[in-house]
């Protein structure tokens, strides 16, 4: 199937892209990896009149740790998240996630920024980055704040496929707090077959103090609500406790209570809710195993 006709433009700077977005307003759409947008255009679910390609803008694919923050450029491909040693070594939650998104060929093109902006409640980066307590850096027309603002990811997602992006704005960066000592994470996903979207997936990030007491916890849920969800009650329950099996089990129950699954071809709601519980428990165990306790 062929997309409807459109006009294509590949700006070479962010400023040009923002100006084009302003100029063409609701007729324009940004193109990142194209791995969600192009299939939607082929089905004519998206019919932009002007397509603004971000792929020719240099400097949007940085991936580095800087003063206690992991900075992920919006155009960083899933593949880079999977392969970069920094991510593999210090951010197991994110490396786990990258490995289970789509298939290796789609991962060569798809971007982290595109996934977040797409705001699919079944998108894996949403849940993983909520667990990581990520922030989104948004760049728009220059005015106050030099055209940049930063939002917690939680406030960025406003509904299914809906975000807090305003006209003329582009996601330029995702920021993740660097892990402290005795901190790790994990991401677990149930899929019908390899490469498919999640039936359910859960991401966790947990940090312990020197006595083994939980001092920080993040839990993100994928495909069980109108947006990616944060399981706040489960996070709060863990804090200040030693995460033994009974504490983890309760966290799983609280995460399941926070989920809002619906029945569909991937399974009944009841099953999905219980899988939130199971995956939360397993992901917490896996994250804890990854914490080196001296």
């Amino acid at each position: 199937m062929f997309p409807a006709p459109f006009e294509y433009v590949a700006p070479s700077t962010l400023d040009q892209a923002i100006r084009l977005l302003q100029q063409y307003g609701a007729d324009a759409r940004l193109l990142a990896g194209g791995q969600s947008l192009i299939p939607m255009m082929r089905f004519r679910l998206a019919n932009p009149k002007v397509l603004i390609d971000l792929n020719r803008i240099p400097g949007l694919d940085f991936l580095e740790e800087d003063r206690g923050v992991l900075r992920i450029g919006a155009m960083v491909r899933h593949r880079a998240m999977e392969r970069t040693p920094l991510i593999q070594q210090r951010y197991p939650l994110l490396a786990d996630t990258a490995r289970v998104i789509a298939d290796p060929i789609v991962r060569n093109r798809g971007t982290v920024g595109g996934s977040i902006a797409h705001a699919d409640p079944a998108g894996d980066w949403g849940a993983a980055l909520l667990a990581a307590k990520a922030e989104v850096v948004i760049t728009g027309p220059k005015g106050r704040r030099m055209g940049q603002r930063t939002l917690p990811l939680e406030d960025f997602f406003t509904g299914p496929f809906m975000t807090a992006l305003q006209p003329g704005e582009i996601v330029t960066e995702i920021r993740v707090p660097a892990p402290g000592p005795r901190e790790a994470g994990a991401y677990l996903k149930i899929e019908r077959k390899v490469g498919d979207f999640a039936v359910v997936a859960v991401g966790v990030q947990i940090a312990l103090d020197a006595d083994g007491v939980c001092r920080k916890a993040g839990i993100g849920l994928c495909a069980v609500g109108p947006t990616s969800l944060r399981a706040r009650e489960a996070e709060e329950w863990l804090i200040g406790k030693r995460p033994d099996e009974s504490v983890i089990a309760r966290a799983g129950e609280l995460a399941a209570e926070a989920s809002q699954p619906t029945s569909d071809t991937r399974g009944p709601a009841e099953y999905k809710r219980d899988m939130v519980r199971v995956l939360t428990v397993r992901a917490l165990r896996k994250a804890l195993e990854r914490i080196p306790m001296a």
Partner: peptide, 9 residues
């Protein structure tokens, strides 16, 4: 660069 900022069908 000039070419690039003009959308075209």
């Amino acid at each position: 660069a000039v070419e690039a900022v003009q959308p075209a069908a």
